[in-house]
Design a binder for these strands. Sequence first.
RNA 1: GCCUGGAUAGCUCAGAGGUAGAGCACCUCCUUGGUAAGGAGGUGGUCGUGGGUUCGAUUCCCACUCCAGGCUCCA
Length: 651
Amino acid sequence: MNSHHFTVKLKESSQEIALSRPVTVRELLQMVVAQLKENEPIVGARVDSKELVDLFHLITGPCEVEFVTISSPDGLRIMRHSASHVLAQAVQELYPDARLGIGPATEEGFYYDFLVARPFSPEDLEKIEKRMHEIVKADYSFERQTMKKEEAIRFFEERGERFKVEIIRELEDAEVSIYKHNGFVDLCRGPHVPSTGFIKAFKLLSSSGAYWRGDEKRDMLQRIYGTAFSTHEDLKKYLDFLEEAKRRDHRVLGRELDLFSIQDEAGAGLVFWHPRGSVVRKIIEDLWKEEHIKRGYHLIYTPHIARIDLWATSGHLDYYRENMFSPMEMGEVTYQLKPMNCPFHILIYRSRVRSYRDLPLRFAELGTVYRFERSGVLHGLLRVRGFTQDDAHVFLTEDQLEKEIRDILFLMKGFMNVFGFQEFEVYLSTRPSKFVGSPESWDLAEKILAAALENAGFKYSVDPGEGVFYGPKIDVKVKDAIGRAWQTTTIQVDFNLPERFDLHYAAPDNTMKRPIMIHRALFGSLERFFGILVEHYAGNFPVWLAPEQVRTIPLKDDVVPRAQEITNDLKAAGLRVHLDARNETLSYRVREAETQKIPYVIVIGPREVESGTVAVRKKGGKGVETQSYAEFKEKVLKEAKIPEIITPQEQ
RNA sequence: GCCUGGAUAGCUCAGAGGUAGAGCACCUCCUUGGUAAGGAGGUGGUCGUGGGUUCGAUUCCCACUCCAGGCUCCA
């Protein structure tokens, strides 16, 4: 194509290579391989810091090339994608009737969807995995080939691959690429590793149904999930991580620690907070209320139902109906259980004339809402049908928006830090295709949100077009103790509801102006956040949150009075403490306290009574330490102190 | 909602077309203990709900309810 001379720059060494003809990445690699520091296989390259390509890619002009090693995030992606092809080959060999869906790499592995007569059983997966190992071991080369679109359609039609044909028809390019290895052919954009032997350590994890293109009206395919790593150690680490996540499952811990339950008899997705869970919730609620009052929020309470007309005005009947419980007809009037708190807060705003002097006006409520989530998506405390949002609505002017958003972000960070969440993933979602309000006001609001994020010192990524129809939003995910990201905070700007409810305030020039509204929830919901906390702490709540902070164990009957005395004293000091004077051995009672994840166990025997000490066993610590009772009490009281939320204004 | 797999004692689970089992938990008694399960005995189940097949169903069939894992991270 291009017979001119050109140079290619290598990113890591800044070395420039003069070329007189187009070369593939593989050829380029061979020219410079001796100089590379990497002792790991190279599986691809990033061109001009943009396009990720494999070794088949032809370089036709000047560019900058960065080689991608197999263990880098890009390299893993390439390798996992190749692993999905190996999976597809194994499946087609073992089940010739299987038709191919798609098989991409994911963040943690890969999957491939197949149309098969019979879903895969665990034994099938074993067989498939075994065949995959053989294919990997044989080290078949991948080959890339391009085809004219028409040709490709014929090719895949002949093979009965109707899903592939559908994909090709939708592509705009005149040519498509296919990848082959050992006779297996798949439509694929690539990139791929040079040969199957590059897939070092992999495992199939599960199979499940998945609709073709996520559309429940179309074919149900069978998806096989797997993961792959560049070393067996990394694979093992990942599998251990999955085990660890299982151990932290809040549904299991919730029962074992007697925190909450969800009961068939009452209904799916409806949460019962047991005493031990309720204690934690109360601490969080009290802290939340206190810290909001300090920052100029007004606490309010609103009803759980309202006349359905209110939901027509708010637009929920048009936009949210399928998630709402059915209306309740009571004679002349029909009522609706609330799926959101906003219309209620608006009614309070509108209950009198507001002045610019009142703004920003902040209403906060731990508001319980009910949403009819589809049965298949319910999951422990994380996805439920009745939950309490830590909700607030701020009514304000455009000028006030930036600072208010910034303050909300600071408050969010302050709360999250207290629970040990230090890392955040922040997303700014911008104008979707369907939206209300003017494009200008959207652009401005997006700019303001971006400025607030930057001024508050948050790194964020933009999700273009992912905003809600009524305004742009910021979503925050927190990273837990084992690195999982959980969606919690959401901050949404709303141009729509102030319009629908015809809200206004008296401006300095005595004209009536329309306020803007912010919806925000920091924890999201108390149920969900509590579930996240259980997993984050693995049930080991810090002393200030622990349902039971101290358990007192008298060694034998004649020291019970002293143990009772100490228990009463700690209780009077405000601690959550229980006496376990049951007729069981010491070991037995210690074990139970340990499995109940109680932070402190104190044992009192004759020795301790004599010396005014307690034998302290700290959860997660090693061994027992005898210390004076006064010393112990002081230490625990210090740890039990409810932390304050620190935000920049107060520093 | 859809797919697959489930539902047996409070929990974890075994079981078979013919009167229902274990361990833990719980209760009682013995044991009075030094840091993760002392011993013995006992209570406890309409085998998820409703229907069908059968002389007989918890077991086989159907429907429903609920639970688990999934249901675009787009060749």
